[in-house]
């Protein structure tokens, strides 16, 4: 089922000036309920503009954004309600923290929603658990935390609004492998337990292959490729043309196929590769 839909969306920055720059050209996109969608593309391809369309931070020049079938710009005065339903975590969100304690910072969103204090407290605890913010962190100042911890607090701040669609712009940027994994598993848990859709922008094909159900590749303000992992990674050549690649292990698999091994093409994670190769090479134990 579709939760969020972009239909013929166009957007130009500085329209009507010599600096005009077409950021989005006729975007048509459907985001499915309950799935994790990955958005891939180079800096300047229009990703960030598109994310700002999802929750009404930017208004399209033409075209419609439908949330649950309803045009979000039908009543511009109600646009802030859309922002509670489509939660956007910006790049390096740790720079938005401001309150005295982690608890009250996470509560900022729910408080803006006008919820009562009991509900806010409940949501803060719940979001903290999803995002991997430990209980003892809640009463500390967000400014004493490490970079990775701050990032998780910022993500919890959006999760606490219980958005039906959670959008994140490079949630793992700059984090080490452990930090990345913590963020992604938290997002996966949020998606499974709340039934929300999650949209992430990432540059890591390996992460995309591991966590995303659907992929959207953008280039020059247009949707370049879109579909399941097989549909997108299957077209390695087309990805290469715009300077993007496939996961390392997929490259390895194509080398093996070239070398004559009858392996199916669609392998994007080490685990899948391992399973296939064990059956072919006849592993011993387990």
């Amino acid at each position: 089922m579709t939760i969020l839909e972009l239909s013929d969306v166009c957007y130009t920055y500085d329209k009507g000036t010599p600096m005009a720059h077409e950021a989005l050209v006729n975007i048509n996109l459907k985001i499915e309920k309950g799935l994790m969608t990955g958005i891939i593309g180079h800096t300047g391809c229009g990703k960030s503009t598109m994310l700002r369309m999802f929750n009404g931070l930017l208004k399209p020049d033409s075209g419609k954004i439908l949330l649950d079938g309803k045009d979000i710009w039908e009543n511009p005065k109600e646009i802030s309600k859309v922002r509670f339903r489509v939660g956007l975590v910006m790049q390096y969100p740790e720079y938005q923290l401001f309150d005295e304690t982690v608890r009250s910072d996470i509560a900022y969103g729910p408080r803006n929603m006008g919820l009562d204090e009991d509900e806010i407290a409940r949501r803060v605890e719940e979001a903290a658990s999803f995002a991997g913010v430990s209980r003892d962190m809640l009463d500390r100042s967000p400014f004493e935390l490490s970079g990775g911890q701050k990032r998780r607090v910022a993500i919890a701040g959006i999760m606490a609004m219980k958005p039906e669609v959670l959008v994140l712009d490079e949630p793992a940027a700059g984090l080490d492998p452990k930090g990345r994994e913590d963020i992604f598993t938290g997002l996966d848990r949020y998606r499974r337990e709340s039934g929300a859709s999650v949209i992430i922008v990432s540059h890591s094909m390996e992460d995309m292959a591991r966590y995303c159900d659907r992929l959207v590749v953008m280039n020059d303000g247009e949707i370049y490729l879109e579909g399941t992992q097989r549909e997108v990674f299957g077209d390695a050549e087309k990805l290469m043309q715009i300077g993007l690649g496939v996961p390392e292990v997929t490259k390895l698999i194509s080398l093996l196929r070239e070398g004559g091994m009858p392996i199916p093409q669609e392998i994007y994670t080490v685990d899948d590769a391992k399973a296939v190769l064990i059956s072919m090479l006849g592993g011993g134990r387990k």
Binding site: V249, L252, V270, K274, L277, G282, G284, R285
Partner: peptide, 14 residues
């Protein structure tokens, strides 16, 4: 990932 795969396979006896 290549190294990881070889390692995983060797764990399984290959």
């Amino acid at each position: 990932q290549g190294r990881e795969l070889l390692y995983e396979l060797s764990e399984c006896g290959i």
